Amino acid sequence: MRNSNHLIGVINFLTFLLSIPILGGGIWLSTRANNTDCLRFLQWPLIIIGISIMVVSLAGIAGACYRNTFLMWVYLFVMFFVIVALLGFIIFAYVVTDKGSGRTVPNRSYLEYYLQDYSGWLEDRVAEDSYWAKISSCIRDSKTCSKLRRTVGGVPETADMFYLRKLSPVQSGCCKPPTECGYAYGNETFWNPGVGLAGSNADCTKWSNDQELLCYSCDSCKAGVLATLRKSWRKVSVVNIVVLIILVIVYVIGCAAFRHNRRIDNDEPYGEARMEKARPSRIQL
């Protein structure tokens, strides 16, 4: 391809522009990291991804536009590992989110979540005490449960209204006790002990009407987080598949540009292979 150098340069310029908001978002999160623990999980991945894309894009632009064979070789070498790493992450994401879903509850529109429905690396990671302390702190600081409160005509909603609501996995698992525990509805985050409290579910004794505690230490809360992560990772994996396809196309174009640069460095006319120069045809017309 004679135009492969120009095409790879344009594509990498676009990826360079994409890296700027990604890097800026990571830096902004780092300045906010002292406000809540949940942001600390996001800043470094964003910064690393942004810098990596920026550096690789600059190498691709320089190598393609200035026909620098060495920079193009470095670009293709790094891009190969980026593609392999992205492919590995996609496979990993699907493996660790293979199990788990919400359970239906009679006379309830929302689902409820159980930790035993999940397994593997992701479940072990979330359930780890030190890691869960940071996640639960994040949920508490986000005021997710306090935002559940709703009024209808200036009057707090009734139990029947609440039972018909579509709750998120975190709201269902962290902001109320499991239905099987038999608590009676007071309001969205206040439940009175009732019949059935002696159930086998350990979360029945972990629930607290203290608004700073609620069910943040419950297994159902951890399961709600896992359900949210599973949904998010599946969405991210779809996006990553699209990005992977684009990177593979860019990599193929980059290989064509690299071969084109090598021909120029070897003073080979376009379309003439090195073997043809080394071994010219014996028949001259």
Rank of each mutant, 00 (worst) to 15 (best):
G182V: 01
D210F: 05
T31D: 14
C138L: 11
N12Q: 06
T144K: 02
R282I: 08
W44R: 10
V84Q: 09
L122H: 01
G26Q: 02
A85W: 14
V10K: 12
G26Y: 04
C145A: 01
V126R: 03
V248N: 10
L18T: 14
G88L: 07
C204H: 05
V10N: 09
R140G: 01
G60I: 04
S142H: 11
S30L: 13
A127S: 10
S130L: 01
P193C: 01
M54F: 07
C255F: 08
S130I: 03
S19V: 07
F77W: 10
W44F: 14
K206N: 14
L23K: 01
V170L: 00
N68G: 04
N5K: 11
I264Q: 12
V126N: 08
F89A: 15
C174R: 01
P169W: 02
I47R: 01
Y118P: 02
G194V: 09
G186I: 04
A273V: 09
F89P: 08
M161P: 00
L122K: 02
F258W: 14
G224H: 04
Y251I: 06
V252W: 03
F258C: 12
A59H: 02
V96R: 10
R32Y: 07
D203S: 05
E123M: 14
Y94N: 13
G63N: 10
Y216S: 00
G154L: 10
M72F: 03
Y163S: 03
S237V: 07
T15N: 05
V242K: 04
P177R: 02
R262T: 13
A184K: 15
A278M: 13
R279S: 13
R40K: 14
L86Q: 15
W233Y: 15
P177Q: 06
Y216K: 02
W132L: 07
E128Q: 13
R32I: 02
N35D: 09
S217H: 15
R262H: 09
G26T: 06
Q284V: 12
N266W: 03
L71H: 10
I135M: 02
F41N: 04
S52W: 05
G102C: 01
V10E: 08
R230F: 05
I49D: 00
T31R: 11
N201V: 11
L39P: 01
F77K: 10
E128I: 00
I53E: 01
G194H: 03
I49S: 12
G182R: 07
S146R: 09
R230N: 10
G88C: 06
V126L: 00
E180F: 09
W28H: 13
G63M: 11
I47K: 03
E272W: 11
F190K: 04
G224V: 07
N240Y: 07
I135F: 07
Y114A: 00
A278L: 15
L58A: 11
L42K: 06
F77G: 05
I249L: 15
Q211E: 14
L14A: 13
L86D: 12
F89W: 09
A133V: 13
D203I: 04
F190D: 12
